[in-house]
Design a protein around this nucleic acid. Structure first.
Length: 564
RNA sequence: CGGGGCGUAGCGCAGUUUGGCUAGCGCACCUGCCUUGGGAGCAGGGGGUCGGAGGUUCAAAUCCUCUCGCCCCGACCA
């Protein structure tokens, strides 16, 4: 491909709207343009990257026996009403009516439609298992699109669905996907972790996410430095740092205006872990007092699983319910339901005295208060691994894929059933598995860039190699360059040929920005010694090679890079 | 949906506080010359509903009201 003929609108300056590195570079290097919030145009370079990623997705999905299909993007409401999601999902679903006033929606995901198809076509256990996938546009009217193509309102997703006759079958389909995902992300050149994750509204028992570590990520993941424990903070367990039992006597202490743990801790010169944070929350059942250690944060999702939806109490509610000013709540002597994090089960602590401007030292669980014990804290850096007790670290990460065991949630509501060996009607057992190719591209950039631009992993780069004649008005330069371009193409390589009449500096800058992994530079200087240069984008390392043997050398270098 | 910020040429910005001549700068773009190993130089040139609507005023990019768009933080994320 000739550079001069291709739409590659590089920019020297960064558009002010971009924040994330991948977003800035994709705009600057001419990969994407924004149409509106969360809606992006893929320019030729960007689309080539997407196609290469999708190729890998298809190869690995086909390899585990999944079959590609294509489902509509516009769905009749009826199917979504049957699973309840027409009502469960609120503004995030794009809805419309057809000309006969029938309710329709734009697909945000395709469990409903895949299950509908299974219900229609699968009759017998002999038809199972099945795995169907598609690479299809999804639409979600996101509350807050962000970070360029990382979170958009319209996006392409590889989504696959497994249909099995029993749980063993589901386990197998699930594992096949997990293995395929490892291959896919490795082939795409990403650093990633498979982590335990929340099943969310998908329902079902087991779910994992594939996470590419990056500061641009929206999720925090917890990783054990020693064993394989890895989990999204949304579900992560952890063992808090152990405390000494300080053997305090039970006594009231004066703490004027010291409301927060931080303030009281500084005032009393006692570390935050020796405090009990007492939070009054209003659940549908009424007020609930929740206790976590002073150095911990309440994990709202964990609590929601126990008491349902809740909100924090207002200052007035605290006063009328507990008879104490906010900031001085203690766990002692209340008649309402009390839940506490398990880490508070031993030791003695400081907490509010249920009396303005006073705290109490020496509070002992079981003696001065009782509670229902649960895991209610958010795992944090420095906590210990629930599996092996080594220390935990926390990283930001981009969710690039997920796998869910759905069970029979969708098959039951859409009547996707089969007859088993005994002629008994059973619901199909399902799994659902997603990958966001645009997120793979963004994560690859986030993980591979320098001050000059993108450094693509060779598997998903828009071209295999860029040929750069420095002076297009020099006959010898162009002879050598044209012939190399032709031969590289003939050898099945995808080549970008910078035929523009630009100064060398411009070409080098653009080449670095665009990030094709291997550059071949043809300049008069080297040609005098009958040499050209091969440059590796990632290291900036250059090597002179004789013109005569150039083709073989270049091909070698490209293959070496591809196998890394 | 709550909080904050920003809309002036394709991109980056100045001008807005304190209204005042023809709305400016850098880059990009076009023409010519020149140049060719890290975003060259010189000369000439094109490009603007100052996000939009209404208002105040002799006079509005600038002040007032409404509105639209975009970004960031939070909530949310099936």
């Amino acid at each position: 491909m000739f550079f001069s003929k291709m739409l590659i609108p590089t920019m020297r300056e960064v558009p002010s709207e971009a924040e994330a590195i991948s977003h800035k570079l994709m705009l600057r290097a001419g990969y994407v343009r924004q149409l509106a919030t969360g809606l992006y145009i893929y320019l030729p370079l960007g689309w080539k990257v997407m196609k290469r990623i999708n190729r890998i997705l298809k190869e690995e999905m086909d390899a585990i026996g999944a079959q590609e299909v294509s489902l509509p993007i516009v769905h009749p409401a009826e199917i979504w009403q049957k699973t309840g999601r027409w009502d469960d999902i609120k503004e995030e679903m794009f809805r419309l009516k057809d000309r006969t006033d029938r309710d329709m929606c734009l697909g945000m995901t395709h469990e409903e439609i895949m299950t509908w198809l299974a219900a229609k076509e699968i009759r017998s256990y002999r038809d199972l298992p099945q795995m169907w996938y598609q690479i299809q546009t999804k639409l979600r009217d996101e509350a807050r699109p962000k970070s360029g193509i990382l979170r958009t309102r319209e996006f392409i997703m590889k989504d696959s669905y497994s249909f099995d006759a029993d749980d063993e079958g589901l386990d197998k389909s699930y594992q096949l996907h997990a293995d395929a995902y490892h291959k896919i992300f490795s082939r795409c050149g990403l650093k990633f972790y498979q982590v335990e994750s929340d099943t969310g509204m998908m329902g079902g028992a087991t779910a994992h996410e594939f996470m590419a570590p990056s500061p641009a990520g929206e999720d925090d993941i917890v990783l054990c430095v020693s064993c394989c424990y890895a989990a999204n903070v949304e579900v992560a367990r952890s063992i808090p740092t152990p405390l000494k039992d300080l053997q305090w006597e039970y006594e009231e202490v004066y703490t004027p205006q010291k409301r927060t743990v931080k303030e009281a801790s500084g005032f009393l010169k006692v570390e935050p872990p020796y405090f009990i944070k007492s939070l009054l929350l209003i659940a549908s059942e009424g007020p609930v007092l929740v206790l976590v250690r002073g150095d911990q944060e309440l994990h709202e999702k964990k609590l929601t699983k126990i008491i349902g939806a809740f909100r924090s109490a207002s200052k007035e509610e605290i006063l009328t319910t507990l008879g104490v000013e906010a900031g001085f709540i203690g766990p002692m002597g209340h008649k309402i339901r009390i839940l506490a994090d398990k880490s508070l089960k031993e030791g003695s602590y400081i907490s509010g005295a249920n009396k303005a401007d006073h705290h109490v030292k020496g509070i002992r669980p079981g003696v001065h208060f009782n509670a229902e014990w649960h895991d209610l804290h958010t795992a944090k850096e420095g906590d210990y691994c629930p599996q092996c007790n080594a220390s935990l670290k926390i990283k930001k990460a981009i969710e690039i894929g997920n796998i869910f065991k759905l069970g029979t949630k969708y098959s039951t509501s859409l009547n996707a059933v089969f007859l088993d060996k005994n002629g008994k009607e059973m619901p199909i057992i399902m799994g659902s598995y997603g990958i966001g190719p645009a997120r793979i591209a963004a994560a690859a950039i986030e993980q591979n860039n320098d001050k000059d631009g993108i450094i693509w992993p060779s598997s998903i780069a828009p071209f295999d190699v860029e040929v750069i004649p420095l002076n297009v008005n020099d006959t010898r330069t162009m002879e050598v360059a044209r012939s190399l371009y032709k031969e590289l193409n003939n050898n099945g390589l995808d080549v970008l040929f910078d035929d523009r009449d630009e100064r060398p500096g411009v070409k080098f800058k653009d080449a670095d920005l665009i990030g094709i992994p291997v550059h071949v530079v043809i300049g008069e200087k080297s040609l005098k010694d009958n040499n050209i240069e091969i440059k590796i984008r990632s290291t900036k390392e250059g090597r002179k090679i004789p013109v005569d043997n150039a083709l073989a050398d270049i091909i070698n270098v490209i293959h070496e890079r591809a196998n890394q």
